[in-house]
């Protein structure tokens, strides 16, 4: 049941628009995280706009998305707008006072499943959701999106150890493996070693794929859903700042305000409006 080329093209166009809107909002408030919002774009958009059972934010049987790397919130908000869960014109209120769109996900925002911001906690929360949903007899799936730097946190590996114990085949972790964290690259800050071997040793079904290739991601997600013996993890190779040449692979663009000149250049590359 593979995704059609036509649908892939539609989603690619949606991703382009989302990148424009997310950068516009981050530029507007002169604060936020461009790099990690751009790298997670295809992963999140494919899940939320195509794959997940997500008709209403209060449907108990809905699939759950946990954005554990909460600083990519703007990309989540843009996806929630597309779902119709948030007002179409709210992106501009990002990070402003009295806003629905907090700097990091807050449950005041319809469609946000659980708060995020302190890194390292999302996989455990996703595990809890997977256990609860299974107990309730729902066939819902839980997707947890993790940063690669976030994998430094011990709690991630505590969940990595427990989820296979509980046989959570309704849980899939996706690592946004862009190779860069805040102070520098993974190798500079904390080398991750052989990630695939680590997850496999903890008892996970490990799937590797390109994280900006929608068809490849879709196939990886199919494989995760088909695996019944326990949880799956998709190691999605991404580029931090993907889509804007001068941001790509640069730790400096992790959490930097976008100046006017850089914004204009970014919009030119993405085909967005410069003001």
């Amino acid at each position: 049941m593979s995704i059609t080329n036509a649908r892939v093209s539609e989603l690619e166009e949606l991703c382009r628009k989302f990148r424009v809107d997310v950068l516009t909002a981050i530029h507007g408030i002169q604060s936020g995280h461009p790099g990690g919002s751009l790298s997670v774009c295809e992963i999140m958009t494919l899940l939320m706009q195509e794959r997940m059972n997500l008709q209403r934010p209060d449907d108990p049987a809905r699939d759950r998305l946990v954005l554990s790397k909460g600083h990519a919130a703007p990309m989540l908000y843009r996806n929630l707008i597309e779902k119709g869960f948030l007002p179409a014109d709210c992106m501009g209120s990002l990070r402003r006072i009295d806003s629905l769109l907090q700097g990091h996900p807050s449950v005041h925002t319809p469609g946000v499943e659980i708060p995020a911001g302190p890194l390292g906690l999302g996989l455990s929360a996703a595990q809890g959701m997977a256990i609860a949903l299974r107990a309730q007899g729902h066939t819902s799936r839980v997707w947890a999106i993790l940063g690669d730097g976030e994998l430094d946190e011990g709690c991630i590996w505590e969940a990595a150890m427990s989820a296979p114990k509980f046989g959570l085949n309704n849980l899939c972790a996706i690592v946004d493996w862009n190779g860069v964290q805040l102070d520098g690259t993974n190798d500079e800050v904390m080398p991750l070693g052989d990630l695939a071997a680590k997850w496999a040793a903890f008892g996970w079904n490990v799937i590797e794929c390109g994280g900006h290739d929608i068809a490849a991601l879709d196939a990886a997600m199919d494989a995760a859903e088909a695996y019944v013996n326990g949880p799956s993890v998709i190691l999605a190779k991404t580029v931090k700042g993907k889509g804007v040449s001068f941001m790509e692979g640069k730790a400096a663009w992790h959490g930097k305000a976008i100046d006017a000149e850089s914004f204009a250049a970014a919009m030119k590359e993405l085909g967005g409006a410069a003001e």
């Binding site: 909460g70 990070r95 700097g103 990091h104 995020a116 911001g117 302190p118």
Partner: peptide
């Protein structure tokens, strides 16, 4: 003082 990041920060 990490104003824009919000309550979590």
């Amino acid at each position: 003082s990490d104003a824009f990041d919000g309550s979590t920060h």
